[in-house]
């Protein structure tokens, strides 16, 4: 991999969105937009996103990784993260990828809320396909899980010498300020099927009871990835999510649809 084949840059109307473009090793015939998850999942997934981007670029796929407003290296504070803005940023990023990659056919990939955002943006962004890794389909359940982890965090004896006050942990999810607007948006979130074929990569623990029928139409499918990914384990909150099987599944799919 030549270092110059990966270009960091800012884009968007106010130049506030951070992107990392992975130029393909061969002339690109297709492109992939990698939509990150939100919150701590974004940090935990950084390495696996980069590994996947490099693997795809090596097989001739133009790839763009990027951060939404208020996340990662993009402009804005964490409390400013807004669902509609994330979807709009995704549409912008898809256009940027088409320009830089010189290809019109863009497949979207996203883990957890990144998959949900890719599905929500699929129509506007004209995605040829969405590959969603354990996407969040029902925001109410997701909000409840984060709230429960935040409650547990307050008295996590592995982290704090003594339990913290309720005020200390209020209006945050696992290290990030959360605005009322985003909380309401996620609580009301219900992701449905899109026109684009959808491949769901399922690595949720069996106990989660995840069901994907709602978003996987006749043109899509579900593939199981083992082992299960510990998304909601407070003890692994700061451990990177790594998954060679995920990389194999996505690169394999991109070869199929070449």
């Amino acid at each position: 991999m030549r270092p110059d084949s990966e270009t960091p840059f800012f884009f968007g109307a106010d130049g506030g969105l951070f992107g990392m473009f992975h130029a393909p090793a061969l002339p690109a015939r297709r492109a992939m937009l990698m939509c990150p998850p939100l919150g701590q999942d974004l940090i935990r997934c950084h390495r696996v996103y980069r590994q996947l981007a490099q693997a795809l670029a090596a097989q001739g796929v133009a790839v763009l990784r990027f951060d939404y407003h208020g996340t990662g290296d993009s402009a804005g504070a964490s409390v400013e993260v807004d669902w509609d803005r994330c979807v709009a940023d995704t549409v912008l990023a898809a256009a940027e990828l088409r320009t830089r990659g010189g290809v019109d056919r863009v497949v979207a990939f996203g883990a957890r809320l990144g998959g949900s955002i890719a599905l929500a943006a699929a129509g506007q962004a004209r995605f040829a396909e969405v590959i969603a890794w354990d996407p969040v389909l029902d925001g109410g359940d997701y909000v409840a899980a984060l709230d429960a982890m935040q409650v547990a965090l307050r008295q996590d004896g592995e982290r704090f010498n003594a339990p913290r006050s309720h005020a200390d942990v209020a209006a945050q999810w696992l290290g990030f300020d959360v605005g009322d607007g985003l909380r309401r948006q996620l609580a009301a979130l219900r992701v449905d099927a899109t026109e684009a074929p959808t491949l769901v990569l399922d690595s949720m623990p069996a106990s989660s009871g995840a069901r994907w029928e709602r978003i996987v139409t006749a043109r899509g499918r579900v593939a199981t990835i083992a082992p299960p990914t510990p998304w909601n384990d407070l003890r692994r909150l700061e451990a990177a999510i790594l998954s060679p099987p995920l990389i194999q599944a996505v690169t394999g799919r991109l070869k199929e649809i070449a």
Partner: peptide, 18 residues
């Protein structure tokens, strides 16, 4: 003030935001 994205270093191997 806006930030700048850089690829830099003796081997252009480093990435940072100034």
């Amino acid at each position: 003030m806006s930030e700048e994205a850089h690829r830099f270093g003796r081997g252009r191997h480093l990435v940072g935001i100034a």
